[in-house]
Design a protein around this nucleic acid. Sequence first.
DNA 1: ACCAATTTGTCCGTATGTATG
DNA 2: TCATACATACGGACAAATTGG
Lengths: 256, 256
Amino acid sequence: MQDHEFSRIERAPAYRLVYNAIEREILTGRLRVGSPLPAELQLAEQFGVNRSTVREGIRLLEQSGLVERDGGKRPRISVPHYLDLASSASRALILHSVTFRELWEASMVVEPAIAESAAQHVNEAGLAELTINLEAMETMVVRLEGGGDPDLEAFVQLDRTFHEILAKVAGNRVLALAHEPVTSLFIPTGQIILPRLKTYRRVFDAHHHIFDCLKAKDAAKARSWMHKHMDDFRRAYELTELSLDAPLDAVSLGIS
Amino acid sequence: MQDHEFSRIERAPAYRLVYNAIEREILTGRLRVGSPLPAELQLAEQFGVNRSTVREGIRLLEQSGLVERDGGKRPRISVPHYLDLASSASRALILHSVTFRELWEASMVVEPAIAESAAQHVNEAGLAELTINLEAMETMVVRLEGGGDPDLEAFVQLDRTFHEILAKVAGNRVLALAHEPVTSLFIPTGQIILPRLKTYRRVFDAHHHIFDCLKAKDAAKARSWMHKHMDDFRRAYELTELSLDAPLDAVSLGIS
DNA sequence: ACCAATTTGTCCGTATGTATG
DNA sequence: TCATACATACGGACAAATTGG
Protein backbone atom coordinates (compact mmCIF):
# COMPACT_ATOMS: atom_id res chain seq x y z
CA MET A 1 0.00 0.00 0.00
CA GLN A 2 1.05 3.52 -0.66
CA ASP A 3 0.68 6.54 1.57
CA HIS A 4 -0.61 8.63 -1.26
CA GLU A 5 -2.16 7.80 -4.58
CA PHE A 6 -1.33 10.01 -7.46
CA SER A 7 -4.01 10.47 -10.04
CA ARG A 8 -3.10 8.94 -13.32
CA ILE A 9 -1.09 11.40 -15.32
CA GLU A 10 -2.42 11.78 -18.81
CA ARG A 11 0.07 12.62 -21.50
CA ALA A 12 -1.73 13.38 -24.69
CA PRO A 13 0.61 13.70 -27.65
CA ALA A 14 1.58 17.23 -28.56
CA TYR A 15 -0.32 17.26 -31.83
CA ARG A 16 -3.51 16.45 -29.94
CA LEU A 17 -2.90 19.25 -27.47
CA VAL A 18 -2.53 21.55 -30.43
CA TYR A 19 -5.86 20.25 -31.73
CA ASN A 20 -7.56 20.79 -28.39
CA ALA A 21 -6.18 24.28 -28.01
CA ILE A 22 -7.28 25.43 -31.44
CA GLU A 23 -10.66 23.68 -31.17
CA ARG A 24 -11.29 25.53 -27.95
CA GLU A 25 -10.43 28.86 -29.52
CA ILE A 26 -12.92 28.16 -32.28
CA LEU A 27 -15.76 26.94 -30.08
CA THR A 28 -15.44 29.90 -27.75
CA GLY A 29 -15.41 32.27 -30.67
CA ARG A 30 -11.95 33.68 -30.10
CA LEU A 31 -11.09 32.38 -33.54
CA ARG A 32 -13.92 33.49 -35.73
CA VAL A 33 -15.59 31.34 -38.34
CA GLY A 34 -14.64 32.32 -41.85
CA SER A 35 -11.32 33.85 -40.93
CA PRO A 36 -8.13 32.15 -42.05
CA LEU A 37 -6.22 29.96 -39.67
CA PRO A 38 -3.00 31.55 -38.37
CA ALA A 39 0.11 30.49 -40.23
CA GLU A 40 1.62 27.18 -39.23
CA LEU A 41 4.93 28.76 -38.29
CA GLN A 42 3.22 31.32 -36.13
CA LEU A 43 1.21 28.63 -34.34
CA ALA A 44 4.38 26.60 -33.89
CA GLU A 45 6.03 29.53 -32.17
CA GLN A 46 3.04 30.26 -29.94
CA PHE A 47 2.65 26.66 -28.84
CA GLY A 48 6.36 26.08 -28.63
CA VAL A 49 6.29 23.02 -30.85
CA ASN A 50 7.57 22.16 -34.26
CA ARG A 51 5.73 23.10 -37.39
CA SER A 52 5.24 19.44 -38.33
CA THR A 53 3.49 18.89 -35.02
CA VAL A 54 1.20 21.83 -35.70
CA ARG A 55 0.44 20.42 -39.11
CA GLU A 56 -0.61 17.09 -37.61
CA GLY A 57 -2.91 18.89 -35.22
CA ILE A 58 -4.43 20.80 -38.10
CA ARG A 59 -5.19 17.53 -39.89
CA LEU A 60 -7.36 16.54 -36.95
CA LEU A 61 -9.20 19.85 -37.18
CA GLU A 62 -9.59 19.35 -40.89
CA GLN A 63 -11.19 15.94 -40.54
CA SER A 64 -13.52 17.11 -37.79
CA GLY A 65 -14.75 19.85 -40.10
CA LEU A 66 -13.55 22.82 -38.10
CA VAL A 67 -11.01 23.78 -40.73
CA GLU A 68 -11.80 23.85 -44.40
CA ARG A 69 -9.41 24.03 -47.24
CA ASP A 70 -10.29 25.48 -50.62
CA GLY A 71 -7.70 24.47 -53.15
CA GLY A 72 -4.27 25.67 -52.25
CA LYS A 73 -5.55 28.72 -50.44
CA ARG A 74 -5.23 29.58 -46.82
CA PRO A 75 -7.28 27.15 -44.73
CA ARG A 76 -10.29 28.83 -43.21
CA ILE A 77 -12.06 28.22 -39.97
CA SER A 78 -15.49 26.79 -40.61
CA VAL A 79 -18.47 25.31 -38.88
CA PRO A 80 -18.73 21.61 -39.64
CA HIS A 81 -21.84 20.68 -41.51
CA TYR A 82 -23.93 18.32 -39.44
CA LEU A 83 -25.06 16.41 -42.51
CA ASP A 84 -21.48 15.68 -43.49
CA LEU A 85 -20.76 14.36 -40.03
CA ALA A 86 -23.99 12.40 -40.15
CA SER A 87 -22.96 10.73 -43.37
CA SER A 88 -19.79 9.39 -41.81
CA ALA A 89 -21.94 8.13 -38.97
CA SER A 90 -24.09 6.40 -41.57
CA ARG A 91 -21.02 4.77 -43.04
CA ALA A 92 -20.12 3.58 -39.56
CA LEU A 93 -23.55 1.98 -39.32
CA ILE A 94 -22.70 -0.20 -42.28
CA LEU A 95 -19.44 -1.24 -40.69
CA HIS A 96 -21.51 -2.25 -37.68
CA SER A 97 -23.63 -4.49 -39.89
CA VAL A 98 -26.85 -2.58 -39.48
CA THR A 99 -29.80 -4.47 -40.91
CA PHE A 100 -32.36 -3.46 -43.48
CA ARG A 101 -35.02 -3.87 -40.84
CA GLU A 102 -33.42 -1.31 -38.58
CA LEU A 103 -33.21 1.17 -41.40
CA TRP A 104 -36.75 0.55 -42.44
CA GLU A 105 -38.12 0.91 -38.91
CA ALA A 106 -36.30 4.20 -38.55
CA SER A 107 -37.59 5.39 -41.89
CA MET A 108 -41.15 4.58 -40.85
CA VAL A 109 -40.63 6.88 -37.89
CA VAL A 110 -38.70 9.72 -39.44
CA GLU A 111 -39.92 10.06 -43.01
CA PRO A 112 -43.63 10.51 -42.31
CA ALA A 113 -42.75 13.13 -39.71
CA ILE A 114 -40.64 14.93 -42.30
CA ALA A 115 -43.42 14.79 -44.86
CA GLU A 116 -45.85 16.21 -42.33
CA SER A 117 -43.54 19.04 -41.37
CA ALA A 118 -42.70 19.72 -45.00
CA ALA A 119 -46.38 20.16 -45.82
CA GLN A 120 -46.61 22.76 -43.08
CA HIS A 121 -43.53 24.72 -44.08
CA VAL A 122 -43.27 24.34 -47.82
CA ASN A 123 -42.95 27.46 -49.95
CA GLU A 124 -42.85 28.27 -53.64
CA ALA A 125 -39.14 27.64 -53.95
CA GLY A 126 -39.49 24.22 -52.40
CA LEU A 127 -42.38 23.30 -54.67
CA ALA A 128 -40.36 24.42 -57.67
CA GLU A 129 -37.45 22.23 -56.68
CA LEU A 130 -39.74 19.27 -56.23
CA THR A 131 -41.41 19.94 -59.57
CA ILE A 132 -38.11 19.76 -61.40
CA ASN A 133 -37.29 16.53 -59.61
CA LEU A 134 -40.67 15.00 -60.42
CA GLU A 135 -40.54 15.96 -64.07
CA ALA A 136 -37.12 14.42 -64.44
CA MET A 137 -38.36 11.23 -62.86
CA GLU A 138 -41.48 11.16 -65.01
CA THR A 139 -39.59 11.39 -68.29
CA MET A 140 -37.38 8.61 -67.03
CA VAL A 141 -40.36 6.42 -66.15
CA VAL A 142 -42.03 7.03 -69.50
CA ARG A 143 -38.83 6.15 -71.32
CA LEU A 144 -38.49 2.96 -69.30
CA GLU A 145 -42.08 1.95 -70.03
CA GLY A 146 -41.35 2.49 -73.69
CA GLY A 147 -38.71 -0.19 -73.42
CA GLY A 148 -35.66 1.95 -72.74
CA ASP A 149 -32.81 0.50 -70.77
CA PRO A 150 -32.89 1.67 -67.21
CA ASP A 151 -30.28 4.04 -65.85
CA LEU A 152 -30.70 2.76 -62.34
CA GLU A 153 -28.08 4.99 -60.84
CA ALA A 154 -29.83 8.09 -62.15
CA PHE A 155 -33.26 6.92 -61.03
CA VAL A 156 -32.15 6.15 -57.50
CA GLN A 157 -30.38 9.48 -57.38
CA LEU A 158 -33.63 11.24 -58.26
CA ASP A 159 -35.44 9.24 -55.62
CA ARG A 160 -32.85 10.20 -53.07
CA THR A 161 -32.92 13.85 -54.08
CA PHE A 162 -36.69 13.96 -53.68
CA HIS A 163 -36.43 12.87 -50.07
CA GLU A 164 -33.55 15.22 -49.42
CA ILE A 165 -35.50 18.18 -50.72
CA LEU A 166 -38.35 17.18 -48.45
CA ALA A 167 -36.03 17.05 -45.45
CA LYS A 168 -34.72 20.48 -46.28
CA VAL A 169 -38.20 21.89 -46.78
CA ALA A 170 -39.33 20.47 -43.45
CA GLY A 171 -37.03 23.01 -41.84
CA ASN A 172 -35.96 20.89 -38.92
CA ARG A 173 -32.25 20.24 -38.81
CA VAL A 174 -32.49 17.61 -36.12
CA LEU A 175 -34.97 15.63 -38.17
CA ALA A 176 -32.76 16.14 -41.21
CA LEU A 177 -29.92 14.63 -39.24
CA ALA A 178 -32.06 11.66 -38.24
CA HIS A 179 -33.16 11.29 -41.82
CA GLU A 180 -29.66 11.18 -43.31
CA PRO A 181 -29.05 7.44 -42.88
CA VAL A 182 -32.32 6.75 -44.64
CA THR A 183 -31.34 8.54 -47.83
CA SER A 184 -27.73 7.50 -47.78
CA LEU A 185 -28.25 3.83 -46.92
CA PHE A 186 -31.89 2.89 -47.35
CA ILE A 187 -32.80 4.54 -50.62
CA PRO A 188 -29.75 3.22 -52.50
CA THR A 189 -30.93 -0.33 -51.89
CA GLY A 190 -33.43 0.58 -54.58
CA GLN A 191 -30.67 -0.29 -57.02
CA ILE A 192 -31.10 -3.90 -55.97
CA ILE A 193 -34.87 -3.95 -55.79
CA LEU A 194 -35.98 -1.86 -58.75
CA PRO A 195 -34.50 -3.91 -61.60
CA ARG A 196 -36.14 -7.04 -60.22
CA LEU A 197 -39.60 -5.71 -59.57
CA LYS A 198 -39.67 -2.77 -61.99
CA THR A 199 -41.74 -0.61 -59.68
CA TYR A 200 -40.50 2.63 -61.15
CA ARG A 201 -43.98 3.93 -61.83
CA ARG A 202 -45.06 3.08 -58.30
CA VAL A 203 -42.23 5.13 -56.79
CA PHE A 204 -43.04 8.04 -59.05
CA ASP A 205 -46.74 7.92 -58.19
CA ALA A 206 -45.99 7.95 -54.48
CA HIS A 207 -43.73 10.95 -54.86
CA HIS A 208 -46.36 12.69 -56.89
CA HIS A 209 -49.06 12.09 -54.30
CA ILE A 210 -46.83 13.46 -51.60
CA PHE A 211 -46.09 16.47 -53.75
CA ASP A 212 -49.82 17.11 -54.20
CA CYS A 213 -50.33 16.98 -50.45
CA LEU A 214 -47.57 19.52 -49.96
CA LYS A 215 -49.12 21.82 -52.52
CA ALA A 216 -52.46 21.49 -50.74
CA LYS A 217 -50.71 21.91 -47.37
CA ASP A 218 -52.41 18.75 -46.20
CA ALA A 219 -49.97 17.59 -43.55
CA ALA A 220 -51.92 14.56 -42.35
CA LYS A 221 -52.30 13.19 -45.85
CA ALA A 222 -48.66 13.86 -46.66
CA ARG A 223 -47.70 11.85 -43.61
CA SER A 224 -49.95 8.96 -44.54
CA TRP A 225 -48.74 8.82 -48.15
CA MET A 226 -45.16 8.81 -46.99
CA HIS A 227 -45.99 6.06 -44.57
CA LYS A 228 -47.43 4.02 -47.39
CA HIS A 229 -44.43 4.82 -49.58
CA MET A 230 -41.97 3.54 -46.98
CA ASP A 231 -44.03 0.46 -46.34
CA ASP A 232 -44.03 -0.21 -50.08
CA PHE A 233 -40.29 -0.22 -49.93
CA ARG A 234 -40.27 -2.94 -47.31
CA ARG A 235 -42.76 -5.04 -49.23
CA ALA A 236 -40.70 -4.75 -52.37
CA TYR A 237 -37.66 -5.79 -50.39
CA GLU A 238 -39.52 -8.81 -49.05
CA LEU A 239 -40.71 -9.79 -52.52
CA THR A 240 -37.11 -10.27 -53.51
CA GLU A 241 -35.39 -13.14 -51.77
CA LEU A 242 -33.54 -10.66 -49.56
CA SER A 243 -33.87 -11.03 -45.82
CA LEU A 244 -34.96 -8.05 -43.77
CA ASP A 245 -32.50 -9.01 -41.07
CA ALA A 246 -29.45 -9.39 -43.26
CA PRO A 247 -26.85 -6.70 -42.75
CA LEU A 248 -26.41 -4.19 -45.51
CA ASP A 249 -22.84 -4.84 -46.41
CA ALA A 250 -20.58 -2.26 -47.87
CA VAL A 251 -20.27 -3.97 -51.21
CA SER A 252 -23.94 -3.83 -52.05
CA LEU A 253 -23.98 -0.10 -51.43
CA GLY A 254 -21.02 0.58 -53.65
CA ILE A 255 -18.72 1.79 -50.95
CA SER A 256 -15.92 -0.47 -52.07
CA MET B 1 -16.72 28.10 -77.11
CA GLN B 2 -14.17 25.38 -76.88
CA ASP B 3 -13.85 22.34 -79.07
CA HIS B 4 -13.38 20.13 -76.10
CA GLU B 5 -14.02 20.50 -72.43
CA PHE B 6 -11.58 18.91 -70.11
CA SER B 7 -12.95 17.57 -66.89
CA ARG B 8 -11.76 19.49 -63.91
CA ILE B 9 -8.42 18.17 -62.79
CA GLU B 10 -8.38 17.30 -59.15
CA ARG B 11 -5.17 17.66 -57.28
CA ALA B 12 -5.69 16.47 -53.77
CA PRO B 13 -2.68 16.87 -51.51
CA ALA B 14 -0.63 13.74 -50.98
CA TYR B 15 -1.61 13.34 -47.35
CA ARG B 16 -5.24 13.16 -48.39
CA LEU B 17 -4.48 10.57 -51.05
CA VAL B 18 -2.77 8.55 -48.36
CA TYR B 19 -5.90 8.89 -46.26
CA ASN B 20 -8.14 7.79 -49.12
CA ALA B 21 -5.95 4.84 -49.95
CA ILE B 22 -5.81 3.52 -46.41
CA GLU B 23 -9.51 4.22 -45.82
CA ARG B 24 -10.31 2.18 -48.88
CA GLU B 25 -8.20 -0.73 -47.68
CA ILE B 26 -10.06 -0.70 -44.40
CA LEU B 27 -13.57 -0.40 -45.84
CA THR B 28 -12.98 -3.21 -48.30
CA GLY B 29 -11.58 -5.38 -45.56
CA ARG B 30 -8.12 -5.77 -46.98
CA LEU B 31 -6.89 -4.18 -43.76
CA ARG B 32 -8.73 -5.99 -41.05
CA VAL B 33 -10.27 -4.33 -38.03
CA GLY B 34 -8.28 -4.91 -34.88
CA SER B 35 -4.98 -5.46 -36.59
CA PRO B 36 -2.23 -2.88 -36.19
CA LEU B 37 -1.65 -0.31 -38.87
CA PRO B 38 1.46 -0.99 -40.97
CA ALA B 39 4.52 0.92 -39.88
CA GLU B 40 4.76 4.52 -41.05
CA LEU B 41 8.02 3.91 -42.82
CA GLN B 42 6.62 0.92 -44.62
CA LEU B 43 3.60 2.91 -45.77
CA ALA B 44 5.86 5.73 -46.88
CA GLU B 45 7.82 3.34 -49.07
CA GLN B 46 4.72 1.74 -50.55
CA PHE B 47 3.06 5.05 -51.38
CA GLY B 48 6.28 6.65 -52.48
CA VAL B 49 5.88 9.63 -50.19
CA ASN B 50 7.66 10.90 -47.17
CA ARG B 51 6.99 9.60 -43.74
CA SER B 52 5.74 12.99 -42.54
CA THR B 53 3.14 12.91 -45.27
CA VAL B 54 2.01 9.49 -44.14
CA ARG B 55 1.75 10.76 -40.60
CA GLU B 56 -0.56 13.57 -41.66
CA GLY B 57 -2.76 11.10 -43.48
CA ILE B 58 -2.91 8.92 -40.40
CA ARG B 59 -4.11 11.89 -38.35
CA LEU B 60 -7.10 12.15 -40.66
CA LEU B 61 -7.84 8.47 -40.15
CA GLU B 62 -7.47 8.94 -36.44
CA GLN B 63 -10.01 11.72 -36.25
CA SER B 64 -12.48 9.86 -38.44
CA GLY B 65 -12.33 6.94 -36.03
CA LEU B 66 -10.82 4.40 -38.37
CA VAL B 67 -7.58 4.27 -36.41
CA GLU B 68 -7.43 4.06 -32.67
CA ARG B 69 -4.46 4.50 -30.46
CA ASP B 70 -4.14 2.94 -27.05
CA GLY B 71 -1.43 4.67 -25.10
CA GLY B 72 1.96 4.44 -26.71
CA LYS B 73 1.17 1.20 -28.48
CA ARG B 74 0.85 0.53 -32.14
CA PRO B 75 -2.24 2.24 -33.54
CA ARG B 76 -4.90 -0.28 -34.39
CA ILE B 77 -7.48 -0.30 -37.10
CA SER B 78 -10.92 0.11 -35.64
CA VAL B 79 -14.51 0.61 -36.62
CA PRO B 80 -15.72 4.08 -35.73
CA HIS B 81 -18.58 4.09 -33.29
CA TYR B 82 -21.60 5.70 -34.88
CA LEU B 83 -22.66 7.26 -31.59
CA ASP B 84 -19.32 9.02 -31.24
CA LEU B 85 -19.65 10.43 -34.73
CA ALA B 86 -23.24 11.37 -33.97
CA SER B 87 -22.16 13.35 -30.95
CA SER B 88 -19.86 15.51 -33.03
CA ALA B 89 -22.76 16.02 -35.39
CA SER B 90 -24.79 17.13 -32.39
CA ARG B 91 -22.12 19.61 -31.48
CA ALA B 92 -22.26 20.90 -35.03
CA LEU B 93 -26.01 21.43 -34.61
CA ILE B 94 -25.30 23.83 -31.78
CA LEU B 95 -22.82 25.74 -33.90
CA HIS B 96 -25.60 26.02 -36.46
CA SER B 97 -27.85 27.60 -33.83
CA VAL B 98 -30.40 24.84 -33.75
CA THR B 99 -33.48 25.82 -31.79
CA PHE B 100 -35.16 24.20 -28.84
CA ARG B 101 -38.24 23.75 -30.98
CA GLU B 102 -36.37 21.70 -33.55
CA LEU B 103 -34.97 19.46 -30.86
CA TRP B 104 -38.31 19.06 -29.22
CA GLU B 105 -40.11 18.22 -32.45
CA ALA B 106 -37.50 15.59 -33.21
CA SER B 107 -37.80 14.17 -29.72
CA MET B 108 -41.56 13.88 -30.12
CA VAL B 109 -40.91 11.75 -33.18
CA VAL B 110 -38.01 9.63 -32.06
CA GLU B 111 -38.43 9.05 -28.35
CA PRO B 112 -41.92 7.53 -28.41
CA ALA B 113 -40.79 5.20 -31.19
CA ILE B 114 -37.83 4.17 -29.05
CA ALA B 115 -40.04 3.56 -26.04
CA GLU B 116 -42.35 1.43 -28.15
CA SER B 117 -39.53 -0.63 -29.57
CA ALA B 118 -37.90 -0.92 -26.16
CA ALA B 119 -41.10 -2.40 -24.73
CA GLN B 120 -41.03 -5.02 -27.45
CA HIS B 121 -37.41 -5.98 -27.06
CA VAL B 122 -36.60 -5.45 -23.40
CA ASN B 123 -35.03 -8.30 -21.46
CA GLU B 124 -34.07 -8.94 -17.85
CA ALA B 125 -30.70 -7.25 -18.17
CA GLY B 126 -32.30 -4.12 -19.55
CA LEU B 127 -34.91 -4.02 -16.80
CA ALA B 128 -32.15 -4.43 -14.22
CA GLU B 129 -30.21 -1.50 -15.64
CA LEU B 130 -33.31 0.64 -15.62
CA THR B 131 -34.11 -0.39 -12.06
CA ILE B 132 -30.74 0.79 -10.82
CA ASN B 133 -31.20 4.05 -12.64
CA LEU B 134 -34.69 4.58 -11.23
CA GLU B 135 -33.66 3.78 -7.68
CA ALA B 136 -30.83 6.27 -7.85
CA MET B 137 -33.18 8.92 -9.12
CA GLU B 138 -35.78 8.13 -6.46
CA THR B 139 -33.36 8.57 -3.57
CA MET B 140 -32.29 11.83 -5.12
CA VAL B 141 -35.88 13.04 -5.43
CA VAL B 142 -36.69 12.06 -1.84
CA ARG B 143 -33.64 13.89 -0.59
CA LEU B 144 -34.58 16.98 -2.55
CA GLU B 145 -38.11 16.93 -1.22
CA GLY B 146 -36.63 16.73 2.25
CA GLY B 147 -34.97 20.06 1.58
CA GLY B 148 -31.60 18.86 0.36
CA ASP B 149 -29.66 21.01 -2.03
CA PRO B 150 -30.03 19.77 -5.58
CA ASP B 151 -27.14 18.20 -7.41
CA LEU B 152 -28.50 19.23 -10.77
CA GLU B 153 -25.65 17.80 -12.74
CA ALA B 154 -26.17 14.36 -11.23
CA PHE B 155 -29.93 14.47 -11.70
CA VAL B 156 -29.74 15.43 -15.34
CA GLN B 157 -27.11 12.76 -15.85
CA LEU B 158 -29.52 10.16 -14.47
CA ASP B 159 -32.27 11.48 -16.71
CA ARG B 160 -29.98 11.23 -19.68
CA THR B 161 -28.81 7.74 -18.77
CA PHE B 162 -32.41 6.54 -18.53
CA HIS B 163 -33.10 7.57 -22.08
CA GLU B 164 -29.82 6.14 -23.29
CA ILE B 165 -30.57 2.76 -21.73
CA LEU B 166 -33.93 2.84 -23.46
CA ALA B 167 -32.32 3.56 -26.80
CA LYS B 168 -29.95 0.67 -26.30
CA VAL B 169 -32.72 -1.67 -25.24
CA ALA B 170 -34.79 -0.72 -28.28
CA GLY B 171 -32.17 -2.54 -30.33
CA ASN B 172 -32.30 -0.27 -33.34
CA ARG B 173 -29.02 1.42 -34.06
CA VAL B 174 -30.47 3.81 -36.62
CA LEU B 175 -33.02 5.03 -34.11
CA ALA B 176 -30.26 5.27 -31.52
CA LEU B 177 -28.36 7.48 -33.91
CA ALA B 178 -31.40 9.68 -34.44
CA HIS B 179 -31.92 9.80 -30.73
CA GLU B 180 -28.41 10.97 -29.86
CA PRO B 181 -28.98 14.71 -30.29
CA VAL B 182 -31.96 14.46 -27.98
CA THR B 183 -29.97 13.13 -25.05
CA SER B 184 -26.88 15.16 -25.70
CA LEU B 185 -28.58 18.50 -26.35
CA PHE B 186 -32.20 18.37 -25.30
CA ILE B 187 -32.03 16.61 -21.96
CA PRO B 188 -29.20 18.80 -20.61
CA THR B 189 -31.42 21.84 -20.91
CA GLY B 190 -33.05 20.32 -17.86
CA GLN B 191 -30.28 22.00 -15.92
CA ILE B 192 -31.91 25.31 -16.79
CA ILE B 193 -35.51 24.27 -16.30
CA LEU B 194 -35.43 22.04 -13.25
CA PRO B 195 -34.14 24.49 -10.65
CA ARG B 196 -36.84 26.97 -11.64
CA LEU B 197 -39.82 24.68 -11.70
CA LYS B 198 -38.62 21.92 -9.41
CA THR B 199 -40.34 19.20 -11.36
CA TYR B 200 -37.97 16.49 -10.23
CA ARG B 201 -40.75 14.24 -8.99
CA ARG B 202 -42.63 14.64 -12.24
CA VAL B 203 -39.65 13.47 -14.27
CA PHE B 204 -39.16 10.51 -11.98
CA ASP B 205 -42.84 9.53 -12.18
CA ALA B 206 -42.77 9.62 -15.98
CA HIS B 207 -39.70 7.41 -16.06
CA HIS B 208 -41.33 5.04 -13.64
CA HIS B 209 -44.49 4.77 -15.70
CA ILE B 210 -42.46 4.03 -18.79
CA PHE B 211 -40.52 1.43 -16.87
CA ASP B 212 -43.75 -0.27 -15.80
CA CYS B 213 -44.93 -0.40 -19.39
CA LEU B 214 -41.67 -2.03 -20.42
CA LYS B 215 -42.03 -4.59 -17.69
CA ALA B 216 -45.55 -5.32 -18.86
CA LYS B 217 -44.40 -5.31 -22.50
CA ASP B 218 -47.12 -2.81 -23.27
CA ALA B 219 -45.62 -1.05 -26.27
CA ALA B 220 -48.54 1.24 -27.02
CA LYS B 221 -48.69 2.53 -23.48
CA ALA B 222 -44.93 2.98 -23.34
CA ARG B 223 -45.17 5.11 -26.46
CA SER B 224 -47.94 7.23 -25.07
CA TRP B 225 -46.21 7.81 -21.74
CA MET B 226 -43.03 8.83 -23.50
CA HIS B 227 -45.04 11.16 -25.65
CA LYS B 228 -46.49 12.77 -22.58
CA HIS B 229 -43.07 12.93 -20.97
CA MET B 230 -41.57 14.80 -23.92
CA ASP B 231 -44.51 17.13 -24.11
CA ASP B 232 -44.05 17.87 -20.42
CA PHE B 233 -40.56 18.95 -21.21
CA ARG B 234 -41.79 21.50 -23.70
CA ARG B 235 -44.42 22.84 -21.34
CA ALA B 236 -41.84 23.25 -18.62
CA TYR B 237 -39.62 25.07 -21.07
CA GLU B 238 -42.47 27.38 -21.99
CA LEU B 239 -43.27 28.08 -18.35
CA THR B 240 -39.85 29.62 -17.98
CA GLU B 241 -39.35 32.80 -19.92
CA LEU B 242 -37.28 30.90 -22.48
CA SER B 243 -38.36 31.05 -26.09
CA LEU B 244 -38.88 27.84 -28.01
CA ASP B 245 -37.29 29.41 -31.05
CA ALA B 246 -34.16 30.68 -29.42
CA PRO B 247 -31.03 28.85 -30.44
CA LEU B 248 -29.37 26.67 -27.88
CA ASP B 249 -26.03 28.34 -27.65
CA ALA B 250 -22.87 26.58 -26.70
CA VAL B 251 -22.47 28.41 -23.43
CA SER B 252 -25.72 27.22 -21.93
CA LEU B 253 -24.75 23.64 -22.63
CA GLY B 254 -21.35 23.96 -21.09
CA ILE B 255 -19.34 23.35 -24.20
CA SER B 256 -17.15 26.37 -23.68
C1' DA C 1 0.84 42.93 -64.92
C1' DC C 2 5.06 42.21 -62.29
C1' DC C 3 7.64 41.43 -58.05
C1' DA C 4 8.60 40.20 -53.30
C1' DA C 5 7.10 38.24 -49.06
C1' DT C 6 4.42 34.80 -47.04
C1' DT C 7 2.59 30.27 -46.60
C1' DT C 8 1.62 25.62 -47.63
C1' DG C 9 3.12 21.03 -49.37
C1' DT C 10 6.63 17.92 -49.29
C1' DC C 11 10.96 16.10 -48.36
C1' DC C 12 15.37 14.70 -45.68
C1' DG C 13 17.82 13.66 -41.55
C1' DT C 14 18.11 12.92 -36.58
C1' DA C 15 17.18 12.25 -31.65
C1' DT C 16 14.48 10.16 -27.94
C1' DG C 17 11.37 7.33 -25.43
C1' DT C 18 8.98 3.09 -25.37
C1' DA C 19 7.15 -1.49 -26.57
C1' DT C 20 8.25 -6.16 -27.85
C1' DG C 21 10.87 -10.15 -28.36
C1' DT D 1 19.11 -7.32 -19.94
C1' DC D 2 19.81 -6.16 -24.51
C1' DA D 3 18.59 -5.22 -29.18
C1' DT D 4 15.32 -4.01 -32.55
C1' DA D 5 11.37 -1.64 -34.29
C1' DC D 6 8.46 2.02 -33.99
C1' DA D 7 5.99 6.41 -32.84
C1' DT D 8 6.83 11.04 -31.40
C1' DA D 9 9.03 15.22 -32.14
C1' DC D 10 12.44 18.33 -33.79
C1' DG D 11 15.27 21.09 -37.22
C1' DG D 12 16.17 22.52 -41.72
C1' DA D 13 15.29 22.79 -46.71
C1' DC D 14 13.06 23.85 -51.24
C1' DA D 15 9.32 24.24 -54.78
C1' DA D 16 4.86 25.97 -55.79
C1' DA D 17 1.05 28.68 -54.82
C1' DT D 18 -0.99 32.70 -52.75
C1' DT D 19 -1.01 37.31 -51.16
C1' DG D 20 -0.23 42.13 -51.19
C1' DG D 21 2.01 45.94 -52.82
